[in-house]
Computed example of a mutant assay.
Amino acid sequence: MTASVYIHPIAFASGPQAEDGAAIRLAGSMVYASRFALVLREGGAVTDRRLFGARGLDEALSGLDDGLAAEAQRQWANLQKVHAPIKLGERTIRLDQPQIMGVLNVTPDSFSDGGEFLEKPDAGRAHAAAMIEAGAAIIDIGGESTRPGAAATWEGDEKDRVLPAVEYCAEMGAVISVDTRRAGVLEAALNAGAHIANDVSALRYDPRSLELVANMQCPVIVMHAPGTGDDLHEGAEYLDIVSDVFDFLKSARERGIAGGIAEDRIILDPGIGFGKTLADNLALINALPLFHALGSPLLLGVSRKRMIGALSKEEAAHERLGGSISLATKGMDAGVHLLRVHDVKETVQARNVWRGMRDSALTDFAQLPQF
C-alpha cells in the first residue's frame, strides 16, 4: 500500500508578531498558523505524526522518501498560497477576507425554504435584492433539492426554475453561481447571465460538465459527495473521513486541471452534510485548515444544516440561525474564503465584527514597548 502525507495546521496566532514572525498566513486569509502536524497514513491508519513549528519543516521531513517529501513541500507551499481575486468581467471578488454567498432556492422541496421563491417570483426577486443589499458577494441559484431522499429533477424542469431567477438576478448586476450538476442547465444559465458553476457532484454526474466548464472558462465549485448517481448521499464508506475527503478533492482538482480547467478557476467544498454522519461533519469542520494544502480557495456550506438541530434541540431549519453563525465563524477562523448561507444580513454582520477583531489583533503588537 502507498503511504500518503498531510500537513495539518493545529495551532493559530492572532498575527505573525505574536510568534516573532514564526507563523504563516493561511491561503491569503486573515488567519495565521504557528504549529503543524505532518501526518503519514497507510491503508487508512496513521503510521507517523510529527509536530513542528513554522520554521521546522525541514526537520519534520527528515527520513521521508523523495515522493512524500515533495508532496509535503507542495502542501506547505499551498498553505501559504495567496489566491488572486476572482475576476468576472468588470466584477472582482477579493479573497483576502471571507465573502458571503447568498442562497436562492427555486425548488418546490428545499429543506429550508421549499416552494416560496419558485411559486412567487416576485418574492424571489425581492429576496435576491435584499441579499445583495445586505452584502452578498454572490447569489447561488439552485433548482434541484439535494437533501437526502429528494427525487432527481428532470433537466427541463430545472431550467424552467433556474433561468428566470438567473435573469432577474443578472438585471440587478449580481454575481451569480448556479447550483446544478447538469451541463445543459449550466450552459443555459451561463448564457443567461450566470458566472460560476457550483457542481455538487464534482463534475462527475454529467459527462459533459467538465468540458463545458473548461470551454466556458468559468470558475467552478467542486464539492465532495460520495454518490455518483441520482442520490449524492449513498455509498458512503470512509476509512478516515478527513483524509478521504482530502484525497477525493485532490483527485477532482487534478482531473479538472487535466481536462482544461484553469487552476485558478477551481474552488473546493468539503460537502458538509452530503453522505456524512454528525461525527463525520464535525471532524471535517475541525480539520478545515488542512484543506488549504490542496491549493484552491475553499467554500463552506453549513447554513441551517441538519447537524445544527442534532447538536441542539432538533430545531426546524428556519430556527437554526445561531448554529449557522457559530459554524460560519468556525469557517472564518479556519481561513475559509466563501461562506454559502441563507441568512446573509446576519452572517455579513458576524463577518464584519470578526474582521474588526482580526484587524485589531494585527495592530495590537505595535503598541508594545520596543527593547
Rank of each mutant, 00 (worst) to 15 (best):
D109C: 05
P226V: 11
R253A: 15
V82K: 07
P207Q: 13
G259C: 08
A189N: 04
D269E: 10
D199Q: 03
F52I: 08
I285D: 06
G63D: 11
R255I: 08
R320F: 07
A23W: 00
L51D: 12
M332T: 01
I10K: 13
I139C: 08
G301H: 07
N198I: 01
D157S: 13
A194M: 03
K250W: 09
E59F: 02
N78H: 15
G43W: 01
H318P: 11
F274E: 03
G356D: 06
V175E: 02
H233K: 06
T228F: 03
E116C: 10
K330Q: 14
A334N: 04
A279C: 03
M131S: 11
T92F: 00
A84R: 11
L38I: 08
M332Q: 04
P297V: 12
A350N: 05
M131N: 04
V242F: 03
D199Y: 09
V213Y: 04
I325Q: 02
R94L: 12
N215W: 02
F117L: 13
E234N: 14
R161S: 05
E314P: 02
A69Y: 01
A128D: 12
I7C: 07
L298Q: 12
S34Q: 14
T180Y: 12
V31I: 13
V344W: 08
M307R: 01
D244G: 10
V39R: 14
R49C: 15
N281I: 01
L118I: 10
V348L: 10
G331H: 04
I10N: 11
A130I: 04
E171N: 03
R91Q: 15
T329A: 14
S14G: 14
A54F: 00
G56P: 11
A225Y: 05
E144R: 07
A174Y: 08
A183Q: 06
E187W: 03
R50L: 11
A134F: 08
E346V: 09
V344Y: 10
G63S: 09
